[in-house]
Design a protein around this nucleic acid. Structure first.
Length: 470
DNA sequence: CTATGGCACGGATT
DNA sequence: AATCCGTGCCATAG
């Protein structure tokens, strides 16, 4: 089947492979940027509106029947591609009910407020551009469209757009018109003087360990950056107290920055696994989010126009056409790989998904690779930098599906929780041995550390080692 | 003397 | 080829 795909692709070259690989590695949000800039620079590419399945109302990205509905609802996972783009998903799912009294503020007010401030710095011809940008922000104050897309829509240059974006980000609700909570926080940070040592560390934490920060894994951050845990906590507190991940909410006073550090809102999943609505015992639905809503194809009109292209342009156009075809092909391949990957993963790790960490089965990328007949490095790339939302609301890295020790660590947590007398690592090892799990004493110590469990000596009375959980 | 954590090594994984 | 992970050895804290 691979041959068929390859045949249909004219410039079957190393470039093709290289691009497929690099796209595979990208998480959805970054892929989205890639697609947008490609879209903005290549006239042969076209973004087609999404279709909505008439029965289940899910959006589809390619032709053919809706995979969710067409499939007879049996046992086994249902895996399909969803064109809901992932930036929205975390909001619709999980416990993010957020009774936040989000008064439906008229966005015009915010836009006007910002425009007023910018009046002095803004050249007249950039005014409409700024207005366009402000109008396109979502209710949290984030940028919806890729800069390149905006440039095209407003007939501006990319540098103009970025310039104006920068101005807006410095205006009163600071961090406005950024692409997400992280960028908003960073923008706000840049406005603060660097005299505070927290600022420096905070910037590093945001840049390098953002998802860990969202999950409040301070120990891990401290490890990664080789900074004392205390400093990390301090910087995290600084971020919480002085910055706001949702600039628009802050502006409307009511914001009170609610729960500024909800672990889940920071991180948008690339994949979502949920229980099937028609709950047939444990049936699950796996959605592989598309990076953009709608789907990409080579613009048929462009292809048509190729016919009567003048010679001076034809070479250039042909190049665009090839580029577009290649890009589309690569994306399809990426989708295909992700889908097959998740299908196997969901089947194989069904118990882990539905019943929790304990039931994670040891599985290596290499084994999986032979199962679906691709090179192991392909799997590595597919798994890297992706995150998945589990039915229980947790958002975890996809790599967790390959964690060799997760189930054992989970068991250790339980043992420690259950035993009245603090057990030493040796005793824990013995307990596990009795259950048929063989791990060295030294390894127990490491697992304990990973889970933030104190050594036996220190959890004498009550182990209140309530690390980041939930 | 016992329980732990640091360092480092070899084998597995990516 | 580079990286990760489990483990053994040894120093040290209690």
């Amino acid at each position: 089947m691979l041959q068929i795909q390859n045949q249909s692709l004219r410039p079957l070259t190393t470039a093709h492979l290289a691009q497929t690989m690099s796209l595979l590695t990208l998480p959805n949000l970054e892929l989205r940027d890639r697609i947008m800039s490609e879209l903005a620079t290549n006239p042969a590419l076209e973004l087609v509106e999404e279709r909505i399945c008439p029965t289940c109302r899910r959006r589809l990205i390619s032709g053919g029947p809706c995979p969710a509905c067409a499939r007879p609802e049996g046992e086994g996972p249902i895996v399909f591609l969803s064109s809901r783009d992932s930036s929205r998903s975390s909001r619709q799912t999980g416990q993010e009910e957020s009774p936040l009294d989000r008064e439906p503020v008229a966005p015009e007010n915010l836009a006007a407020h910002v425009l007023e401030q910018l009046a002095a710095d803004l050249s007249p011809e950039d005014r409409p551009l700024a207005a366009y940008i402000l109008a396109g922000l979502d209710e949290d104050g984030f940028l919806q469209d890729h800069p390149a897309y905006i440039a095209r829509a407003t007939h501006s240059t990319l540098s103009q757009v970025t310039e104006v974006l920068d101005l807006i980000a410095r205006a009163d609700p600071p961090g406005l018109a950024t692409t997400g909570p992280r960028e908003a926080l960073l923008a706000q940070l840049n406005l603060l003087g660097a005299e505070n040592p927290n600022v420096l560390l905070a910037r590093r934490m945001l840049a390098e360990t953002f998802s860990e920060l969202g999950r409040r894994e301070f120990e891990r951050i401290s490890e990664r950056l080789s900074i004392r845990v205390e400093s990390v906590r301090q910087a995290a507190g600084f971020i919480r107290d002085n910055l706001n991940p949702y600039p628009a909410r802050a502006f409307w006073g009511s914001g009170r920055q609610a729960q500024a550090s909800d672990p889940n809102v920071y991180h948008n999943p690339d994949i979502q696994i949920s229980f099937s609505p028609s709950a047939t015992q444990g049936a699950i639905v796996v959605e592989v989010f598309a990076p953009v809503s709608g789907w990409l194809r080579v613009n048929p009109l462009f292809r048509q126009a190729m016919a009567q292209a003048t010679e001076e342009h034809s070479a250039e156009w042909a190049q665009d056409l090839d580029r577009a075809a290649l890009f589309v092909k690569c994306l399809q391949q990426r989708n295909n790989t992700m889908r097959r990957l998740m299908e196997i993963l969901a089947t194989n790790q069904h118990d882990f998904i539905t019943r929790g960490d304990r039931h994670l089965q040891p599985l290596t990328r290499a084994r999986l690779a032979t199962q679906i007949g691709v090179h192991e490095s392909t799997i590595s790339r597919a798994v890297a930098h992706k995150s998945v939302a589990l039915p229980d609301g947790r958002i975890v890295p996809l790599a967790r599906f390959f964690d060799r020790s997760l189930s054992v660590r989970d068991r250790i947590k339980e043992i420690v929780h259950g035993e009245p007398r603090p057990l030493t690592d040796d005793e824990i090892a013995a307990t596990l041995e009795r259950e048929g799990i063989h791990v060295a004493r030294r390894t127990i110590a490491k697992y304990r550390a990973m889970e933030g469990i104190l050594p036996a000596r220190l959890r004498h009375r009550k182990q209140a080692g309530a690390a980041a959980r939930a």
